[in-house]
Amino acid sequence: MNKLISIIMTLVLGVVTLVTVPAYAEEKVVRIGFPGATTSRPQSGLGWGYVQAKHLFDEEFKKDGWTIDYNYIAAAGPGVNEGLANNSLDFGFHGDLPVLAARSNGLKIKALGAVRGGTSHLLVPTNSHIKTIKDLKGKRVGVSVGTWTHALLLKVLQDNGMTIKDLKVINTSGTAFETSLATGDIEAGFGSLSLIRRGVAREIWSTVGKHVRYQNTNTFVVREEFLRKHPDIVKRLVKVFVKGFYQASLNKNETLKFNTRTGTALADLIEENAGQSIKYLTSPKLDGQVTKQYKDSLALFKENGLIRRNFDPEAELYDRSYLDAALKELKLENHWPDYDSNGNPIKK
């Protein structure tokens, strides 16, 4: 009897190992994940939209058999983190909260460059009595928890001497957010211009024309393990990324046009990005603007209990070597200035 049992157990263990340890065949695939497009998702990353519309990555890697697998993650930044954690993604880009939360909880990633630009609007139903941010006190506010708009809400509340505890937070995003706003289950929340255009909501505040610290500053991240295994691929990828961002920086209207592919109307894109130079919006540099914003965010998140471990992003997160090498190789070292925390170019 014991023999039979041991045979059975060995078989089970064998099956379990086969199921749980997937065969790591050396596939030539680069898997990039980014926040997926849903109707109320604020657009972000103009340079990125250009790179993708032009299929620049695919062209670069086609010749030696690598394919690029684009994953639109509906769960946004937090979903990208999960993909990176469970090895279903190699690269990703997401805003300050998801990146910092991931690194703070020990996800092994490195930030290679910045993907700037992203606006959002604080919306209330058209017939709502809420007029200012202070009126939000005690209201049910829809928050896409863990995304950059969650962070944005914290910043805006802080400016008004409030904290998230003054609100009733309801975790929701995408179409569910829109529906709940219409039914009155949610009384406010960050969303896109399209909701205003369709008469669903009106805005009481928006990032448009505000200080850069309110805008979405994504970072382009890579899994450390992938970086170790394929430094050459990372190098080439970053080079294409920089080249694409350079091309995108040359003509604002052209770049905006390419970005309509995300489903946002051109007029909206023009309005949302008015008053901001395309050079700033396409700068991939991890400069003073990024580091200051991330440093402030880190403190704010710690204060609000969104992250539990403080860390130094310079030491643990940023890896500028690939970006610097690419800039040098493409002779673009002087194309983008470094921006300070106010988004102004630092004159050398």
Binding site: A75, P78, P98, A101, L107, V145, G146, I170, N171, R308
Partner: peptide, 19 residues
């Protein structure tokens, strides 16, 4: 669909990457 509750704690933690 949650405001508070233990299921909500788990969902929030998931989104903040707190396994």
């Amino acid at each position: 669909a949650a405001g508070e509750g233990i299921g909500n704690v788990m969902i929030i933690a998931r989104r903040l990457f707190q396994t």
